[in-house]
Amino acid sequence: MKLGLVIDLDTCVGCNACAVACKQWNTSGTTGPLTDFEPYGKDPTGVWFNRIRNYEVGDYPNSKTVHFPMSCMHCDDAACVTVCPTGASYKREEDGIVLVDQDKCMGCNYCAWACPYGARELDREDGVMKKCTLCVDRIYDENLPEDERKPACVMTCPSHARYFGDFDDPNSEVSIISRERNGEQLMPELGYEPVNKYLRPREKKNVDTYVNETNSIKAVKDWVNRLVAR
C-alpha cells in the first residue's frame, strides 16, 4: 500500500479545522503529547503536524487567494529517513507511512533539515522529532467504527478538501481523483516523490449570458400584459 492524502486547493477555505483536529487527536495519540509553550502568554507556540498557510497568486484585482494546508507528504524518496542517523525515522514497508520512533530519536533535527515541506517539528520538551503519523493509530484501530478509520484531518474537513487512501490501488478515491484532476507534487524538482498530491483550482466556469434579442424595454409602457391566472 502507498497511503497518503490528496488536498483540493479548489475547495479549501483555510478554516484550520484539519490543523486543530490533528492537534486534538494526536496530543493523546501515539506520538503525544504535542507540547504547547506559553499557551496563555506571549507568543504562544507548540507542536503541530498540519499547518495552513495562505498565499495570493497574481495582482489585484485579478488576484486569487489560495489556502494551503501542509502536513507530511510521506515521500516515496524520503530523505528525512535516509539522513536519520539513529534509524528513528523510517518509512513503513507495508503502507509507506513515514514515522519517527519516539524512543530512538536523539533530537538532532537533521531529518527536519532534509524535509523540504516543513513537515517535522521538534518537541523541545520531549527532545524528539514529531510529525504527522497519517493517524496510524486511527486508520488501523479496529475498535473504531470502520468509516472512522481515517485521519482526523480528513474526517473533519468541512469543505471536503482532503482525501485519504491508497495510491497503489488504481481504483481508490485518491488515485482516481488525482488522475482526473492532475494531482501535483510540490517541488517535484527535488525528487522526493511526495505521495500527497495537490489539486489545483478548477478552471473558471464560463456561463452564457442570456440576451433577449427582440427586446429592449425602455419604459413600462413597452410591456404587454400576459394572461396568467393567479
Binding site: G29, T31, V81, K91, K104
Partner: peptide
Amino acid sequence: EKLRYQTHEAVGLNRSLKDILTRGDTKR
C-alpha cells in the same frame, strides 16, 4: 508556561533494530 494535554499515556510504535540495521533505503 507549558501545556501537555493527554488523556492517557501514549502507546508508541517502534521500529525494530533488525529493520534499522538491515533495510537499505526508504522504499518498500
